[in-house]
Amino acid sequence: MTRQRYRQLRYPLIALALILGLLAIHQYRLYASPVTAQRVQTVTISNAGFLPNKLSVNKGETVSLMIVNTDIRPHNLVIRELNVQSSDLKPNQSATLQFLAEQEGQFPFISNTPGYPEIGYQGTLIVN
C-alpha cells in the first residue's frame, strides 16, 4: 500500500477504534450495573388507606414499590426519613418507586397530597 492509501484509511480506522472502545465500555457498564429489585411489592391506596400498611424488606435490598391509587381522590406515598416520595397520583394512576434500603429500622409512610398528612393514610416500612 502506498502512503496516500494509509492516509485515506487513517480516519476510518480511528473511528472504528473509538466505536469498539465505546462498545467495550458499554458492555462493562451493563454487567457492572447495580442489581435491580428482586421483587416488586404493590401498595394500593384505597378509601380505607394503604393496603398493605406494613411492608418488610431486607437491609441492602433494592426496594421496588408499585403504588396504585384506586381511591376517588389524589394521593401519594412519602417516606420522609428515607427521602422517598411518589408523585401525586390521580384516581386509577400508578407509579413505581425504587430505592435502596440502606439502614435498618421502622420507617413510617404517609400520604400528604393536600400538603399535610392525611388521616388514615399511613403505614410502616420495616427494614431488617
Rank of each mutant, 00 (worst) to 15 (best):
H75Y: 04
A101E: 11
L89C: 03
S56T: 14
Y28N: 05
P34C: 01
T124M: 11
N47M: 13
S56L: 10
L13D: 08
V63H: 08
S86H: 07
S86T: 12
S111C: 15
G115L: 02
S64A: 15
Y28V: 13
T36M: 08
D88H: 09
L125W: 01
T2I: 04
P74V: 08
A95M: 07
Q122N: 14
N58E: 14
A101T: 07
R3N: 11
G105W: 04
P117R: 03
T42Q: 11
T96P: 01
L125E: 06
S33Q: 14
R5M: 12
K54R: 14
A95F: 06
Q106K: 13
S86A: 02
E102T: 15
N53R: 10
S111H: 04
V40G: 01
L82V: 04
L30Y: 06
V63N: 06
N58Y: 11
I72M: 10
V84D: 05
F107A: 00
T70F: 05
G60T: 08
L16H: 01
Q38K: 13
T124N: 02
R39H: 11
G49A: 07
G120C: 06
N58M: 12
R7T: 09
A101G: 10
K90F: 12
S46V: 09
V78W: 12
P108C: 02
L18S: 11
K59I: 15
Y121H: 04
V78E: 05
P52D: 11
I25Y: 12
Q103I: 14
V127C: 02
L125N: 00
R39Q: 13
M1T: 07
L22D: 05
F109H: 01
L100C: 01
R5P: 00
R29Q: 14
Q93Y: 02
T62I: 03
S64I: 07
V57C: 07
R80K: 14
F109C: 02
G21E: 09
N53Q: 13
E81W: 05
K59F: 09
Q4C: 04
N69K: 01
T36H: 03
L89G: 04
A37K: 00
K54M: 08
A24D: 10
A95T: 13
T113K: 05
Y28T: 13
G21F: 10
I119Q: 14
S111P: 02
L18H: 05
M66E: 15
A24R: 10
R7D: 07
L89Q: 04
L77V: 00
A101K: 06
L82K: 00
Y28W: 13
V68G: 00
I19L: 15
T42Y: 03
S64V: 09
Q85E: 13
Q27P: 00
Q103L: 13
E81V: 06
V68R: 08
H75I: 00
Q8I: 15
I19M: 10
Q106N: 11
Q4F: 12
I25Q: 09
P34R: 05
G105D: 01
V68Y: 06
E118H: 02
P91C: 02
G105P: 05
T42F: 01
A15G: 09
T42M: 06
L9M: 15
P117Y: 04
I25S: 12
A32D: 12
R80W: 06
V63M: 08
L16M: 04
L20Q: 07
E102N: 15
M1S: 10
H26V: 11
R5L: 11
N112D: 15
Q8D: 08
A101W: 08
V127W: 00
A32W: 03
F50Q: 03
R7V: 10
G123E: 05
I45F: 00
T44Q: 10
L20F: 06
